[in-house]
Design a binder for these strands. Structure first.
Lengths: 229, 229
DNA sequence: AGAAAGGCATGATAAATATCAGGACATGAT
DNA sequence: ATCATGTCCTGATATTTATCATGCCTTTCT
């Protein structure tokens, strides 16, 4: 029996496990991983479902969504690789508080939650490290919500444009992964006003819009708007 | 040397430690606790300070506040006993992300963070239990922020009135622990509009106001407003 | 006591945002 | 091919909220 080699060399979560688990424990955990590809638009978890897995995003982009009623949704956050997908309530609730939906083709790696918990109980260092990461994710959500709350329409749109450019795509030209409606659900304004504001930015030559592609043409001005509106 | 008896019989955090720590570890931790009384209005932690203690609220009421600039503040949440005070970033950041201020005379019990962390590393069950509690606190903050975001002025005021009545004071008559300005900072509206709305509720006989004392006179209507506005 | 500052209150007006309506365009289903 | 659906877009209007101004009352400071 040859030694097991984890195939996930690019997986950022490795460090978490590596640094804190015995080699044997790490490998047995890794061996049981279930990897799955969710195409763009597909539902990864449904709000209310039982949480059975500890999941993390290897590639792609997802949104966390809260269903208020039949018609209305709130987007809690967008999550990229390294942000855990089932992050929010994994240790505190038995059911998913939010739905998770793929915005781009996304690879999810899952481990049985029971086993991760078991491992955490046996290894405090691992548990603490896990808590740290989950904590940070929650913190970021709260901080972003506060940042959005303190801005008005224009500032909120500027903020989210800068978020995608700086945090997600690391480029001032990118394909907008979300619809105007989704932006509205994220910043808590109406779809019409999101559209209007983007048009306004286009007319003021702050951004260029070409189909799904957005180019930030005047970043300085966009930053100004994000700070002052 | 007689056996050490923890004096904090009413402390809800006991269970967390009790269930998960060896008696010796629990007692040595408990023996080092620092208990302090913060009078109403006093600063417990200042945003930006280094986090040195693991703290929890034994009695009283506090607010978590984010200073945006010289003049403007955002209130993140109110915390009662059982909610940890230094909860948000305790494992993920080295500095307090928010200030904590006493709204009522408050007793805080503190343990050295390093020691709690050390203990968590040595005891996975304890670490997991801690993570669970901190996780739940973050979840609640996020949920409350989403609940407020989906409402408009009247709904937000109704929501916070019901929050104090149902969650904090468990009574439809209570002394409002926060100013109109603080309500405004919490719900993200202006002070004038908070005042106006409360007056409106008073005129519509939904609440009675007598100095600091609020009485919810027509709870059914208040719930309706909270759901529809 | 008197002054200063802050909380509470209300009105008038301005600004921001939502709602409603309509149309162009793309996409997917039948 | 055609229909239905959904997204993007714009304008007109209504609603909601913020801002500005003012006054009263209480508390705090001196």
């Amino acid at each position: 029996m040859g030694e097991y080699q984890c195939s996930c060399n690019g997986c950022e979560l490795r460090s978490l496990f590596f640094e804190n688990l015995e080699k044997g424990a790490y490998e047995s955990m890794c061996a049981k991983k279930q990897q799955q590809l969710y195409p763009k638009g597909s539902l990864i978890y449904r709000q209310g479902e039982k949480i059975s897995h500890f999941s993390y995003l290897k590639s792609g982009l997802v949104k966390l969504v809260r269903n208020i009623d039949d018609k209305n949704e709130q987007i809690i956050c967008f999550a990229r690789p390294l942000d855990f997908v089932s992050l929010l309530s994994i240790f505190s609730e038995t059911c998913h508080q939010y739905s998770v939906i793929a915005l781009e083709d996304s690879e999810i790696c899952s481990l049985y939650l029971d086993e991760v918990k078991e491992m955490a109980m046996q290894n405090g260092r691992f548990a603490l490290s896990l808590a740290e990461k989950i904590n940070r994710a929650s913190d970021n959500i709260i901080l972003t919500m506060l940042n959005i709350r303190q801005r008005r329409l224009l500032g909120r749109i500027a903020y989210i444009l800068l978020y995608f450019a700086n945090e997600v795509y690391k480029s001032d030209v990118f394909d907008m992964p979300v619809s105007r409606k989704e932006i509205a659900e994220f910043i808590g304004m109406t779809t019409e006003n999101v559209i209007r504001t983007l048009s306004e930015f286009r007319q003021d030559k702050i951004i260029k819009i070409n189909g799904k592609t957005i180019e930030i043409a005047d970043k300085e001005k966009l930053v100004q708007i994000s700070l002052n509106a």
